[in-house]
Write a protein that binds this DNA or RNA. Structure first.
Lengths: 224, 224
DNA sequence: TTCATGCTTCGATGGTAGCCGAAGCATTGG
DNA sequence: CCAATGCTTCGGCTACCATCGAAGCATGAA
């Protein structure tokens, strides 16, 4: 029964943590629930078997998200009933600093701007995304050549794909990885639009005044 | 947590049995869940504390119903998720014979026709019902005088109320009790619209051809 | 009143499932 | 290749809770 899955406090905490639509790693969910990774692993397996969550492997990590808006809806309904009965659950938002905006993920751009960039590419049909698979369209190739001086033959690599959806750590949505993601980030640096923070070990990416404008002109979504 | 309440199989069976909106007695729910009355009592107390069901005392019996359409909605949602995950629950309808249509409850009319009668009275604003409380309106008094020759002073009684909502055994919805309910049943008999079945101990009420027509003319709902 | 029915409370039992420590894979990085 | 990280599997422990027998109330019937 599905309800018994949600009934357990540890699992309920995990699900609540996922309610904002983002994906979380197994360890993070363990911490959210206040249990050890072993226990969390067991719970996550059950939730997955029950069809409430689905995993996405990303390197050493394993991200989990709610399978469906329907699931979120039912959980919301349950929370509503619980609220009437006097009980209340509070859940605070995430806690990250300002590196949520732009940072390096391996060798490509991540964070709010990274997600925004992929969103824009997808929306303007410069790439086609199906789940984890991303493909560059003909229009996309033209766009890259014209605005960033990136040609397709720069991107071929024996083992690495050109495009790849990479789950964003702070935004928990996809940004663009692969040789294209790396090439674009490299180009941003060359153009002096952005630079990695000077602090050793920092992953923060600082955009310049003009870089920010240029980036917004290419990948802006009208929100800022 | 509310979900843990629904999570237990026994409780889930009880709730499913209540999903049609009717009310069931504690013993019936125990049978539905396949457990003893003691265990059922414990479960029902928890469900009530969780605000999922609410009781209504009726003589020696204790009827339970879902507190709210919202509760039914959430349960429906959970069932939907469960269905996706492969599981399926089947639930058959009730099983009673033909005395579900019309029978004597103490001294007033019960069964499908009894429920239908109260529905009609309520719908045409001849009575006002608030939970268990039922009150005869001015239009109701006129209606009774005109069509059934029942005057308000026939209905006064030192200890018994004129109108009372009585939970119907087969329909599990309210029908009309109190001195008015008794008077109306008596009038039906006098008018030879209906008569109690001859079989000793039987509570079945048989309507005559013409009685059925007259009854439908007064309290019909267009369904038949 | 006394008896019968319906439901609840109490107490004891047992099965189930959450939990963690330790060890085992898988992936990444050096 | 080895080491580190992230997650899973395995085994045993513990606590919770559903379950039922027996007894206690309440209501209605005789």
């Amino acid at each position: 029964m599905v309800a018994s899955l949600v009934g357990d406090p540890a699992r309920a905490n995990m699900l609540t943590a996922l309610m904002n639509g983002r994906a979380l790693t197994a360890s993070e969910l363990a911490q959210e629930a206040g249990i050890t990774p072993q226990t969390a692993s067991s719970h996550l397996a059950k939730l997955e078997a029950g069809g409430l969550i689905e995993p996405e492997k990303q390197g050493r990590h394993r991200y989990y998200r709610l399978t469906d808006p329907d699931v979120a809806g039912v959980l919301e309904g349950l929370a509503g009933l619980a609220a009437r009965a006097g009980h209340m659950r509070v859940r605070t938002g995430p806690k990250d600093p300002a590196l949520r905006r732009a940072r390096i993920c391996y060798d490509h751009l991540a964070g709010d701007l990274g997600v925004q960039m992929l969103d824009s590419l997808r929306e303007r049909k410069l790439v086609k995304q199906k789940k984890q698979e991303i493909e560059l369209t003909v229009e996309g190739e033209r766009f890259l050549a014209r605005h960033l001086q990136i040609s397709p033959d720069m991107l071929t690599h024996p083992r690495r794909p050109v495009c790849k959806a990479c789950l964003d750590w702070s935004e928990r949505r996809h940004h663009l990885a692969g040789t294209l993601g790396a090439a674009m980030m490299r180009r941003f640096t060359e153009l002096k639009w952005a630079a990695r923070d000077a602090t050793p070990g920092s992953r923060v990416v600082n955009f310049t005044r003009t870089g920010e404008k240029q980036f917004a002109a290419l990948f802006g979504n009208g929100r800022e």
